[in-house]
Every structure is written in structure tokens, then in C-alpha cells.
């Protein structure tokens, strides 16, 4: 994945406030964790979102209000979104475990209020430059992501950090 996460683009999918992780991936699918399985069942119980997700060009930029990723710690929610073609989530605020899970899986998550953006608009997120631009002209400055978190994202996720830790351990 490398530095590409520093500049990501996606077609907007507007989802509103308090989208919980049960809505993203219902509990009845959690006994399996293959990305294909989870991606197939993403938003199964929210047909209004799923229908638009299916017709939105890929990659997708989810644009949310407050409290995205409410609820359960299931990392399956992030895996499901990625498998369904989501490249970035922009929300006014995130629940903390979802935020951490996204970073740890190399999925950029950015805090910003994009209230003017509409479905299918192209959204460009430039983490290095600290800006978001939508095709309708809406622009935002992004609060800088702390370097420790950016490092995990740039590695491609926490698994890659762990891989380095393990190989250092095995060398010594």
C-alpha cells in the first residue's frame, strides 16, 4: 500500500449520524472472517445504504455525520467496508474502536464535516497536504493525524508493524 494512503479518492456515499457496527456488519455473519464473505454482507440490514453502495462507482468515500462506528469492537466492520470497495471514511466524529480498527487495517479515516457533499461526488483526501476537496468545490482543512498513527497507516496497518517487531525479535 505504501504512501498511496496519503492521497486517496472515492465517490461519496452519504450515511448520516450514529452508524453502528451492527448496521455495517450484522452479528449473524461474524462466525466467519474472510473479506469476501464480510464484503458480500456489508449493510445487509440497511437496504437504503446497501442499494446506494451497490450503484456508487468504486472506490467509495463514505461521508458520515457524528459517531460513525458506534458500538461493537468487531474489526469485521472495517474488513467488510474495505472488501466492498470503501477507500476512505470521512465523518464529523468516530467512535474510538472503529477509528483504531480502521487505522490498523490501513483504511484512512478523517474527521471533517462534509455536510454539503452529495452522493457520488468525487472526494479527494490529501492527508499529507491536510485537505479534502469535493468535485462540487467544497474544501476542508483536516486536523493533522498524529505521527504515531500516520506511521501505522503508511505501513499498511498494524499487522505490518507487528511483522517488523517479530522479525526483529527473531533476529536477536
Amino acid at each position: 500500500m505504501g504512501v498511496s494512503v496519503m492521497r486517496v479518492r472515492g465517490y461519496a456515499l452519504i450515511v448520516g449520524n450514529d452508524v453502528d457496527t451492527d448496521t455495517i456488519i450484522p452479528a449473524r455473519y461474524l462466525h466467519r472472517s474472510e473479506p469476501e464473505w464480510l464484503g458480500e454482507h456489508v449493510f445487509d440490514d440497511a437496504p437504503g445504504i446497501k442499494g446506494r453502495l451497490n450503484t456508487t462507482p468504486k472506490p467509495v468515500a463514505i461521508v458520515a455525520g457524528d459517531g460513525f462506528g458506534y458500538g461493537s469492537s468487531r474489526e469485521h466492520a472495517v474488513v467488510a467496508l474495505k472488501a466492498a470497495g470503501v477507500a476512505v471514511v470521512v465523518a464529523k466524529s468516530f467512535h474510538r474502536i472503529f477509528y483504531r480498527n480502521a487505522i490498523n487495517n490501513g483504511l484512512p479515516v478523517v474527521e471533517a464535516d462534509l455536510v454539503e457533499v452529495r452522493d457520488c461526488e468525487l472526494v479527494l483526501v490529501d492527508l499529507a497536504g491536510g485537505t479534502i476537496t469535493a468535485s462540487s468545490g467544497c474544501t476542508r482543512r483536516i486536523k493533522p493525524i498524529p505521527p504515531q498513527i500516520l506511521e501505522i497507516l503508511e505501513c499498511g496497518g498494524l499487522k505490518e508493524v507487528l511483522r517488523k517487531l517479530a522479525s526483529e525479535h527473531h533476529r536477536t
Partner: peptide, 28 residues
């Protein structure tokens, strides 16, 4: 790796929920 890990705060501990990758990292 469960969001309701906060429960143990009733015992004056700092307890918080994390995801699976982080649990793996913390275990290692």
C-alpha cells in the same frame, strides 16, 4: 477485544475495548 471491556473500571482499573489486530499486537 470487546467494546464492553470498560466493565472492569468498576474495580478501579483502566479497562478499554480494542480490535483484533490490536489484541494481537498487545499479546505479542
Amino acid at each position: 477485544a470487546d467494546s464492553h471491556t470498560l466493565t472492569y473500571g468498576a474495580l478501579s482499573s483502566f479497562a478499554t475495548g480494542i480490535g483484533s489486530s490490536e489484541a494481537a499486537y498487545a499479546m505479542a
